[in-house]
Computed example of a mutant assay.
Amino acid sequence: MRLVFLGPPGAGKGTQAKRLVEKYGIPQLSTGDMLRAAVAAGTPIGAKAKAVMEAGGLVSDDIVVGIIVDRIEESDAQRGFILDGFPRTLAQAEALDAALKSKGLKIDLALELKVDHEKLVDRIVNRAQEARDRGEEVRKDDDPEVFKTRLASYVRDTAIVAPHYKKQGLLVEVDGQQPIDAVTDSIENALSSGLTKN
């Protein structure tokens, strides 16, 4: 079961991915974590990434896809994996498809959590206010202005990834505004029907 999780920031992808990890015993792969691990392990692709990062550059899609391909060859990912937060652009989606195809693999399903953007902003504003009311520091991601910038970036770059998977018949849209358990049930239904179809 090789899954891609799509949806705007704050839609609940992390929460739902964690539940799938627990249920199916497959890893949730975060490109940031994999990048740091590859650099720390000194793998050939990690060394390339380190050189780019030390020069202050952005790690190219080729390097990121290379790190994902290395990571999914590890034993815990043999039964599948969840990509959360990647691909972020159409170019990344195409590079990922090509890299997986070269290994005889493909994405089984792309799950998109659909959430009204205004409601998402309200959710973040409330979450930030609740943290302040408890005397806690507001997470940087929960700062409404930072969040609006992330949302705009998502709309500009990542929202076009969903049609890429839709064209392949792999996209399943899930209403992310339902209660958390209802979202989980919808995802389970999508997995059972979507995986048998493909």
Rank of each mutant, 00 (worst) to 15 (best):
P8S: 12
G104A: 06
R132T: 13
G14R: 08
G12Q: 03
D61N: 15
T196L: 12
N198E: 11
P8F: 00
V69M: 02
E112V: 10
G85F: 03
Y24E: 03
T149R: 14
P9Y: 01
K106E: 15
L6G: 00
V4C: 03
A93Y: 11
A37Y: 01
A11S: 15
T15K: 05
D84H: 10
R156F: 01
H164C: 06
A11F: 05
S102F: 02
A182N: 08
K106I: 08
Q177F: 00
S193Q: 15
I187C: 08
L191F: 10
K13T: 03
T43N: 08
D175S: 02
I124E: 09
A128L: 08
R132G: 10
A152Q: 15
R132N: 11
E22C: 14
V121H: 01
A77R: 10
L58G: 12
Q129G: 04
I68A: 07
K48P: 06
V115P: 01
V155N: 12
A128D: 06
Q177I: 01
K13F: 09
A51N: 13
I68V: 14
Q92H: 07
Q28G: 03
V4S: 06
K140G: 12
T158M: 01
T158A: 02
K119F: 00
E74F: 01
K148H: 09
G176I: 00
Q28P: 02
E173Y: 01
D76G: 08
I82R: 03
Q16G: 05
L170P: 08
A38M: 11
L100I: 13
K101H: 13
I72M: 04
Q28N: 05
Y165K: 07
G32V: 04
L170W: 10
P27T: 09
A131M: 07
T15A: 12
D175V: 14
S60G: 10
E22S: 14
T149H: 13
S60W: 11
R71D: 11
L6Y: 03
D141Q: 13
V4L: 09
P44D: 09
E188K: 11
G104M: 10
I63Y: 07
A17Y: 00
D76V: 03
P44I: 01
L90Q: 06
E188Y: 06
M34A: 10
N126H: 15
E136I: 09
E118S: 12
R2C: 11
E188F: 14
G42H: 03
Q28R: 08
G80I: 05
L113C: 05
D108Q: 11
V21C: 09
I82N: 00
M53N: 04
K50W: 14
V115G: 09
D62F: 12
A37T: 08
F86T: 08
A40M: 00
V146E: 00
V161I: 11
V161F: 09
E137I: 12
L111I: 15
V174K: 00
F81E: 05
S30C: 04
G7Q: 03
A17M: 09
F5K: 00
A38F: 07
A51M: 11
G32T: 10
S193M: 14
F86K: 07
I187T: 13
A49M: 04
Q16K: 07
D84R: 05
S153V: 14
V64A: 15
A131C: 07
L100A: 06
V161G: 02
P9L: 01
P9F: 02
L35V: 11
V172R: 13
I26E: 04
E94R: 14
M34C: 14
K50I: 06
